[in-house]
């Protein structure tokens, strides 16, 4: 089966700084791929390139069969995205924001779609509150709902569990597991290693813009008992290599 996300030699430079350097990877349908890395290592920039939010300086990428350089909007139509920092607009209610996203995506049956998410993530009683008055966790729930409102086959999620309480975290994890078991694909960025180990079927480690490791669960457990040990080992090795 061809990969649903494929990056070939992606490079992103911001002036003299290289944020992502020669990154190549492939993610297949049914995979929950976790991209791990320290703060500022290039995870978010990678997601932005793969979803057509920013143009790569070099290299190519295809997502859901579409070239992200040529069809950035179509890519964003097909995928769901949870950005790392963005929150829903302050002065719309949670319900209004979901309807806004639905209107942009041209969705019908919005009441039904929304109520599924109110029930799943348990924020229906706060749907008529302005997003600025919601707790961070509830705002994150709204962002999660907007990403999956159109029932995409591919989702890019950047720290989706942040600010969520353990109950909702469990719900979200189960949802993502179920999503990939039904053939969906998730590209998951995080630096919470326990979550990545519990959730991801395959892992990539990025350090200073370079993909320094790729492997599945089996490979990780063969090398180290814990993902944390592997992660720290890789980062230290790369750090020493780059400073030598």
């Amino acid at each position: 089966m061809p990969p649903v996300i494929e990056a070939r030699h992606l490079v992103k430079k911001f002036g003299p700084t290289t944020a992502v350097d020669d990154l190549s990877l492939a993610v297949h349908p049914g995979e929950l791929f976790g991209l791990l890395g320290p703060n500022g290592s290039g995870k978010t920039t990678t997601i932005k390139m793969l979803t057509g939010q920013t143009v790569p300086t070099e290299g190519t990428a295809t997502v859901a069969g579409l070239d992200v350089r040529r069809h950035p909007l179509k890519v964003r139509e097909r995928v769901g995205i949870i950005p790392e920092q963005e929150m829903p607009p302050s002065f719309l209610t949670a319900e209004e924001y979901l309807h806004f996203v639905g209107a942009i995506r041209g969705l019908s049956h919005m009441e039904r779609r929304c109520s599924l998410w109110y029930d799943l993530l348990d924020f229906g009683d706060q749907k008529d509150m302005l997003c600025k008055d919601l707790s961070r966790g509830t705002r994150q729930k709204v962002m999660f709902a907007q990403a999956f409102l159109h029932e995409p086959r591919v989702a890019f999620v950047d720290e989706p569990l942040i600010n969520l309480d353990p109950i909702v975290q469990r719900t979200v994890k189960n949802y993502l597991r179920d999503f990939v078991s039904r053939g969906g694909t998730v590209f998951f960025c995080t630096h919470v290693l326990e979550i990545a180990q519990a959730l991801c079927t395959r892992i990539g480690i990025i350090y200073r813009g370079r993909l320094v490791y790729q492997g599945d669960r089996e490979d990780i457990t063969q090398r180290h008992a814990h993902l944390e040990d592997l992660f720290l080992d890789m980062i230290h090795r790369e750090h020493h290599a780059s400073s030598a």
């Binding site: 719309l92 209610t93 319900e95 209004e96 309807h99 806004f100 209107a103 942009i104 008529d128 509150m129 302005l130 008055d133």
Partner: peptide, 23 residues
């Protein structure tokens, strides 16, 4: 008390004057 608002967006997003940009 935290104010609550009915879904005004739904009505405004159908405003014909704004055409395709209504949302």
């Amino acid at each position: 008390p935290t104010p609550r608002h009915p879904n005004t967006f739904r009505r405004l997003a159908r405003w014909p004057l704004a055409g395709a940009h209504a949302p």
